[in-house]
Write a protein that binds this DNA or RNA. Structure first.
Lengths: 223, 223
DNA sequence: AATATTTTGTGAAATGTTACACAATAAAAT
DNA sequence: ATTTTATTGTGTAACATTTCACAAAATATT
């Protein structure tokens, strides 16, 4: 993963498990536990104890036989890797229902993330004095550079998504999570404009395919 | 995948690719194209031509050398597998911002899905006369059974999610896509209550981990 | 102190997924 | 009609990920 040759898919699964470990360990800690065994942690997030041990080996987290792992030590290492000493700032472009929901998403705070601003093209949405301000799209570039924002969410209608992506990349965004109902990807048209050493990583939230997949699996389960 | 021993992860990737093929092929068709080659389709959705051909072999879609695949034939087979002759009905439980956004999510219509009702605990949200009605949670069971709904979305606060999941499974929901900022899973406590042959498949939308992963990858890219 | 038990750590095996390679085939070119 | 070219189809290889298996170690028990 980290040190070995890895791909983004492997990374993502690993990061997902790390996030799950973190959440569960925080719960265990809140219950007063100080140590955890790999089989208990594995049960909690639906992976095998071997996977837990492999993950912890990857992070150089030492365990002790019959003593398991020290929860504080695991949390410390996970936070180090994910660099979650302080909340990571992100922006949301497109402040319709999904966008504003994401601006105020409760899960961000608990997971070391912070939506710091929204941007929209609709003047009625603009609210610079809100708790999390919403600015016009024209101010995106200035804001992104001034605040050194690297990651953003796109939650605009499908037909605007590609153009918004262009603006975000131009502004300096280097990671995009796309909620628009259209597949976005980093294509060659950006390379002529941007520093060649840094592209933009785009991940799409596949809401429809997730549901289609559920329908498919539910049908199969009924057979 | 379909005929071979498969797991849900493999299925999901396959279904995701099918959805992507479908979207792209609809676009190609709108452009007047009648045939497609595996390398063009692969380019369009970022997979290798071999993957495309393997997928089509799995679906028994015949191609012809130097003639490629007939777009209509591929779409027909994909729709058959995904059973998308008519929109698949789903419900949304929790009609806050994410919930109402999902009720009206534009991507559903184009992807063969239809949100037919929302449910909420808050009386102020109830709106039985809306285009997509929102009912009180007490009516969930009746509605689900009467309309034979099998799949639903959870978009409630974290602290309500588990209880809402219970109600949904009790009502007859067999596939759940969870947007609440908490990991849900189908645990043993359901087994005593439900028909043993049919569990409930739960997938979590990992919004925070997706973003954490983006931060991680962006950081790695800058190194 | 000695023994038993339970867990970690990790090399290797197994499984899953993707890509390679090329024979076969069909359309295009001659 | 024949040859050339470009693609499909698929067996197999390569690579990625997960699991197995067990030695080693540390705690618990005797």
């Amino acid at each position: 993963m980290l040190h070995n040759k890895m791909n983004q898919a492997g990374d993502k699964k690993f990061i997902l498990r790390l996030s799950k470990y973190k959440r569960v360990l925080q719960q265990f800690k809140a219950l007063g536990m100080e140590r955890v065994f790999s089989n208990n942690l594995g049960d909690a997030i639906d992976v095998t104890p071997t996977t837990v041990r492999k993950d912890f080996a990857e992070l150089n987290i030492p365990g002790s036989k019959r003593g398991g792992y020290v929860i504080d030590e695991v949390l410390k290492r996970v936070n180090e890797l994910l660099e979650q000493d302080k909340p990571k700032k992100l922006i949301v472009v497109g402040c319709g229902k999904i966008g504003t929901a994401l601006l105020m998403y409760k899960g961000f705070e608990q997971d070391g993330l912070m939506a710091v601003a929204g941007f929209d093209i609709d003047p009625k949405k603009i609210d610079p004095n809100a708790t999390i301000p919403i600015f016009p799209l024209e101010e995106l570039k200035t804001f992104v550079k001034k605040n050194n924002i690297k990651v953003g969410i796109i939650s605009v209608p499908a037909e605007s998504a590609s153009r918004v992506l262009d603006l975000m990349i131009e502004a300096g965004i280097r990671g995009v999570l796309n909620f628009a109902p259209v597949e976005l990807k980093y294509t060659k048209r950006f390379i002529a404009k941007n520093d060649h050493t840094a592209g933009c990583i785009i991940h799409n939230m596949h809401i429809s395919p997730e549901l289609i997949n559920l329908f498919f699996l539910v049908k199969k389960q009924e057979e």
